[in-house]
Amino acid sequence: MIDPQLLRILIALVGILGFVALNALALVYAERKIAGHVQRRPGPYEVGPHGILQPLADALKLMGKQLTTPRDADPVIFWLAPILCFMPVALCILPIPFGPNLIALDLNLGMVLILAFAGLGVLSICLAGWGSNNKWGLLGAARAVAQNVAYEIPLLLAVLSVAFMTGSLNLATITEGQGTWPWQWNVLLNPLGFIIYFICALAETNRAPFDLPEAESELTAGFHTEYSGMGFGLFFMAEYANMIVACSVATVLFLGGWNGPFAPGWWWFLLKMYALIFLIIQIRWTYPRVRFDQLLNLCWRWLVPLALLNLVYVTIIVKL
């Protein structure tokens, strides 16, 4: 009686939530270890061999903490925000083809679906900053809005350039349009698009050097200053899940998805995705945070015109 498509989506959602949670644990460990080694210290070392159980301890701590609501905060909006932050990310993973048959929802408009639901992240940050009735939170929210609205434009233009090349917004079709070997991937024909996409993805996921909405040296913790326990935990998981989405989309659009020499499959996809995530983590611990005017100047003076020029270049290439 139950529609098989609906059942497929439900099972996929459960699977995705498990993947996202496990992935957050792994990435927390990776992030802290890499940060440690970049700064010439061992990183977490006490819990388990080489600190491997540290993320589990962190997760237990977060889940055990009391959830506090600030006295003058708006309780409805305050607790709506972390949920609204986390749920759409899980939906964003639905149309991503991890392998030839490993796709939860083969949708013709897969790319549009990801962009549409990714836009909800800004709204949740706004609500979090506003709802906590805290000056730092509000400043973080204001920064998040200016940053995300600005960087969405070059991001969309970079995605559009790939859509021009493939003539499709279906992520599976885009993957199949690229060949087995690295020189057949979109990144070679459209390198500028890849660079623009990657910079914008960093800004959209609020990762350093663009982590101004939560800049701890200026705003304590920005929009999630007031969140304790799993309220903060959900924002945290959403950030790592957002990294998965951004890197997966980059893998599909520019790096050939699950295509790869010798035995194409989901392992190639995961390899490329985690390589990109590794790069993002390294960038975070290598470069200092940009100033806010630098951030906006970079977007409006460089990325938007370059993305437009890139679009012209791609149309010429497609015509040839």
């Binding site: 949708l107 549409a116 836009g119 609205v149």
Partner: peptide, 25 residues
């Protein structure tokens, strides 16, 4: 009409409401 539905989310929920929020702020 999934395209129109997704555009509704992208433009109204993702952009317009954020702009309204910015104005309120």
């Amino acid at each position: 009409a999934p395209f129109v539905g997704l555009m509704q989310l992208l433009i109204y929920v993702g952009a317009i409401s954020v702009l309204i929020f910015f104005a309120i702020m």
